[in-house]
Amino acid sequence: MRYPLTALLAVAVCAVMAGASSFAAITDWLHDLDERAQERLGFTAGVPVGSTVWRILTRLDDTLLGTVLAGWLRTRAPVEVTRPRRYRTVIAIDGKTLRGARTGGGRQVHLLSALDTTTGIVLAQVTVDAKSNEIPAFAPLLDAVEQVLGTLAGVLFIADALHTQTGHADEVTARRAHLLVQVKANQPTLFKQLKQLPWAQIPVGDRTRDRGHGRRETRTVKAVTVATPGGIAFPHAQQAVRITRTRIVAGKTSRETAYLTASLPAGQALPRDLQTWIRRHWHIENKIHHVRDVTFREDLHQARTGTGPAVIATLRNTAIGWHRTTGATNIARATRHANRRSHDLITAVTSSYPTTQ
């Protein structure tokens, strides 16, 4: 028997939004629905067995699926009626290894993702070649993000030190976007240049203090304009940034210093902006990767066939993004709520919405 692909995708999205954490759980969720709900999803002549659902989903183009679902989510994200004067789309980039999943050759699956830190929507995700690392996957990820947004002009990408690559800086600038990256010992010349800047003479640009869980933390930001080319050994860099984090836990004080470069000039990126944007990079770890592990038990899922590992991760991204756009802060609670109200969930997922982005 043949089943509509749109129906299979709809049930996969709905099931994961309701907490399904595997392909088998997606099938179980479908089979547990009443006949009316199954018909509303597009199954008018019976429902597929688990092997059919698994076989089709593990053969999908995961990058294309991510593009389609990200675009679909953006049409459902609420429009901000009033945006701050200095509003900018900030996208955090980070990778995650699926510890339980393996490729056909036995290697672990590693995914590189791009998160819109304002909406909570993962705009794109690409699979890192098993014989390589995240660096070659950066440009394809930009391609996927650009396909969703239409243009990258003015967008700020934030990434960790692995992506402090001259090729990345050139690639981002060519697309009229901007890059904010941390600098560590993997770029020794640049790291030394940043560390030797006259920071003692540069005034504090922004300082924040946080308290909680028995910890007090102070984050101090200094930023200085650097002249390129010739200023520092990184193309398109407009500012050098230093962040000092001082933590007091149980009476013990620790201090950590981080250096970054930004391709935005001072007039477009004040120290308080930089402070906010840098902290947003943690959103992809705390609000996406951690939730996939804890709520959806991703690291225990031993997907191995075809594009299955990336497809199920994309469905989890979509579920998290959906619940974020509807105002949920506790994704586990939101999935339980959705599971108890399957007809409401089906209505929300299958109904037509105007484009809002």
Rank of each mutant, 00 (worst) to 15 (best):
H236P: 03
A137R: 12
P140V: 08
I232N: 09
R215K: 14
K192I: 00
N186M: 12
P140A: 11
K222L: 07
P198C: 05
A169K: 06
L141M: 10
T208N: 09
H213S: 07
A144H: 04
V241E: 01
K222G: 00
A137H: 10
A240E: 05
L197R: 03
L162C: 01
Q187A: 06
I202S: 05
V224E: 00
V221C: 10
G230Y: 14
E146I: 04
L141D: 09
F157C: 04
A233Q: 14
G214S: 06
N133M: 02
G150H: 00
A185L: 08
A185D: 15
V204T: 15
T189G: 06
L194T: 09
N133Q: 02
E146T: 07
Q165K: 09
G231H: 10
E146Q: 15
R215C: 06
Q193L: 06
E134Q: 13
E134N: 11
Q182K: 13
L149I: 06
E146R: 14
K222N: 02
H163C: 01
A233K: 13
A159K: 08
A159V: 11
A144V: 06
K195H: 14
A161C: 06
R219P: 00
A161R: 11
Q182P: 00
K222Q: 15
L152I: 11
E146N: 12
